[in-house]
Computed example of a mutant assay.
Amino acid sequence: MTTYTKINGQMTARIPEISSVTTLDEQQIDYYDSDTGTPIPRQDWIKKFGDRFKKYIEIRERVQQINKIDIAVLMQQFNQSHGVHTYQRMYGCDWDDDTGGSHVFDEHGYDGEDFISLDVKELTYTAHVPQAKPTVLKWNNDRKQLDFLKNYDPECIYWLRVFLDFSKTAFNKTEPPMVSLLKKNQDYYVLCHVTGFHFRETNILWRTNGLKNFSKLVEYREMLPNGDGTFQRTVALKFLPDDWKTNQYACVVEHESLTEPIQKNLTVDDIKSNGKVKPA
């Protein structure tokens, strides 16, 4: 997905007038703004993509030039004479590996609210507010631009699958994540901290006596980026005093890229030492 943002008006902080960010499975893969004037790769694997990355950027910029909105025109349509205003466009596609289904989208927003969206299959724009109707009427009558967008569906899916294949190949060559079992102070929480994994859909869970623990005793904390394209997350388990002496607990990390799940059993030594446990 690419998010294109344009800001109009005086800002107290220095923010580029135009910026765009492209993400793959919620990870930023490139960045551009009007100050730098050059797309910047954000992942090591895409830096090795070479000339194909340049070709992708050219196609993306060509799509971005279609139906760009002038904020000054929008201000007139909304009867606004001053202030800071933002136009944002999000376009891209989703691919389902299981079903082979795809979905392409192109959505425009103004000041954080839905403005116009495109039905890519029907090649028809829809106005989400009355002020968007004149623009939608103009765009729906521009057959040349609509015909150009016919190719956007297959092109977007093509590049999405290329990036997915290339990124997963790069990720599969990396080391498995690090798993740590931690206990702080005298509370009854044990933390399973996992870091260094590449996929946000990685499952981290606690098992009690071999069964997944669905109870309220498990607390999933926020997933955080590490800055190198990997993520970290902590899943806390709360137990009653001495409960760990009669029950077996294990932190399990699952993902399709792993040949088998990483499982770390919680022992008395782990609790007492507060030590880190590395994958086998």
Rank of each mutant, 00 (worst) to 15 (best):
N79Y: 15
Q76K: 15
R60L: 15
F78L: 11
I59W: 06
N79D: 14
E61M: 10
Q80N: 07
H108Q: 13
A127S: 11
E113F: 06
V120T: 12
Y110C: 03
A127V: 06
I59S: 01
D94N: 14
Q76P: 03
D97I: 07
V129I: 13
G83A: 08
D94G: 12
T126M: 01
D97C: 08
Y87L: 03
T135Q: 13
F105D: 00
F105M: 01
Q65F: 05
I57H: 11
F115T: 06
T124A: 10
G50A: 11
K68H: 09
S102V: 12
V63T: 01
K133V: 07
G100R: 15
Y125L: 04
S117R: 02
G100N: 08
D98H: 12
G50L: 14
G83K: 03
H82R: 12
N79I: 10
Q64T: 05
V120W: 03
D114H: 04
D114S: 06
Q80G: 01
T99N: 10
R89A: 06
E61Y: 09
A72K: 15
R60Y: 08
D114L: 04
D51H: 11
K68V: 12
R62K: 15
R52F: 10
T124L: 13
P130S: 09
K47Q: 11
I66T: 04
G83L: 06
R89P: 06
Y91M: 12
F78E: 14
K54E: 15
T126I: 06
W95G: 00
E58R: 03
T86N: 14
T124E: 10
R60N: 14
Q65K: 12
Q77T: 13
F49Y: 10
D106V: 00
H85Q: 10
V63D: 04
W95L: 11
E107H: 10
S102A: 07
N79G: 06
V73P: 03
Q65N: 09
P134N: 05
D119L: 02
K121W: 00
F53V: 01
L123M: 09
H103Y: 12
E107M: 05
D98T: 09
Y110F: 15
D96F: 09
D114N: 08
G100F: 14
H128C: 01
S81L: 13
F49K: 06
Y91T: 08
G101L: 14
L74M: 06
S117V: 01
K133S: 04
V84G: 01
H103V: 03
T124R: 13
K121N: 14
R52G: 01
F53P: 02
R52V: 08
T126D: 00
R52N: 14
Y125I: 05
K133H: 04
M90G: 14
K133P: 00
